[in-house]
């Protein structure tokens, strides 16, 4: 059961990575990168790494998204092909 849950989370993380790669709207890509981190946070929980989970929720999820959106305000929102 726990393996099924983690494989679903890993698959969803993969899908969001692919969407980050193909998304033209960079603001959406940044938020999708955050979603990917959310699934990886669940994976860390399932793989019994609470130490990493805290550091990851603070940094990998929270601050990375914020920094990326900060940088994005100074440039183009859309990426041309």
């Amino acid at each position: 059961m726990i393996l099924l849950l983690s494989s679903i989370a890993a698959t969803l993380a993969l899908i969001s990575t692919i969407l980050v790669l193909y998304e033209k709207d960079v603001a959406k890509a940044v938020v999708l990168a955050g979603v990917e981190s959310v699934f990886y946070a669940l994976l860390l929980q399932v793989f019994l790494a609470p130490d990493l989970l805290i550091a990851y929720v603070g940094i990998g999820l929270g601050l990375n998204t914020v920094v990326l959106l900060y940088v994005l305000t100074k440039g183009e929102r859309y990426e041309e092909a």
């Binding site: 990575t17 980050v20 890509a29 940044v30 990168a33 990917e36 990998g60 990326l68 183009e76 990426e79």
Partner: peptide
């Protein structure tokens, strides 16, 4: 796009 590069870097 540099921001996309950075996002993928974190991933």
């Amino acid at each position: 796009h540099l921001v996309k590069k950075m996002a993928l870097f974190t991933i």
